[in-house]
Amino acid sequence: STVKVRLGHLEVTLHNVSEEDVRELRELWKNGADEEDLRRWLEEWKK
């Protein structure tokens, strides 16, 4: 499914993403990950 995730002022649209992935991303964000960390996660996730 396609999910729009809003993290601060960063809005990311993920395609074919699982609930688990979204949860993981939100956890990262809650734990103080900055945009760099999130971008890195997204790069990994896209592979």
Rank of each mutant, 00 (worst) to 15 (best):
G8Q: 03
R23N: 12
T13Y: 07
E20T: 11
G32R: 04
L10K: 07
H9Q: 13
V12D: 01
V22P: 00
H15T: 11
G8V: 02
R6K: 15
L7S: 01
E35L: 10
R6Q: 15
K46L: 15
V12Y: 14
K47E: 10
S18Y: 04
K47T: 11
W41L: 03
L25N: 00
E27T: 08
V17C: 03
V22W: 08
V5E: 01
L14W: 01
G8R: 02
S18H: 07
E36Q: 12
V3C: 06
W45R: 06
V17D: 00
D37N: 08
W45S: 03
S1Y: 15
K46F: 15
R39F: 11
W29R: 05
S1F: 15
K30H: 12
E11Q: 09
K30V: 12
L28R: 04
L10D: 10
E27F: 06
V3H: 03
L28P: 00
S1W: 11
A33G: 09
L14M: 05
V17S: 03
R26K: 14
R39Y: 11
W45I: 06
H15C: 04
L25Q: 00
K46N: 13
R6A: 13
L10S: 06
K30D: 13
K4D: 04
S18L: 07
S1C: 13
V17G: 04
V22D: 02
L7N: 01
D34H: 12
E36H: 12
L7W: 09
E20P: 05
T13E: 08
H9F: 10
E11N: 08
R40F: 06
R26M: 14
R40H: 11
N31D: 08
N31V: 07
L14I: 11
G8T: 02
W45A: 05
L7M: 05
D21H: 14
E24P: 02
K47P: 08
L28K: 04
W45H: 11
G32L: 06
E19W: 10
G32E: 05
V17P: 09
W45P: 02
V17F: 03
V5P: 00
H9V: 11
E43A: 09
K4I: 15
K47L: 13
E43R: 07
R40V: 10
V5G: 00
S18M: 07
D21N: 09
H15V: 09
E43W: 07
E43N: 08
W45Y: 13
L7K: 02
R40D: 05
E27G: 04
L7F: 14
S18P: 05
L14Q: 00
L38W: 04
L38H: 01
V3Y: 03
K4G: 03
R23M: 13
S1Q: 14
T13A: 03
K47S: 13
D21I: 06
E24T: 12
L14H: 00
N16E: 04
V3M: 05
N31R: 11
W45V: 07
E44T: 08
L14V: 05
H15P: 02
E24L: 10
E35G: 04
W41M: 02
R26G: 07
R39I: 12
R23Y: 11
D34S: 15
W29H: 09
K4A: 06
E11A: 05
L38F: 09
V22T: 04
R6P: 06
A33C: 04
V17T: 02
E20F: 07
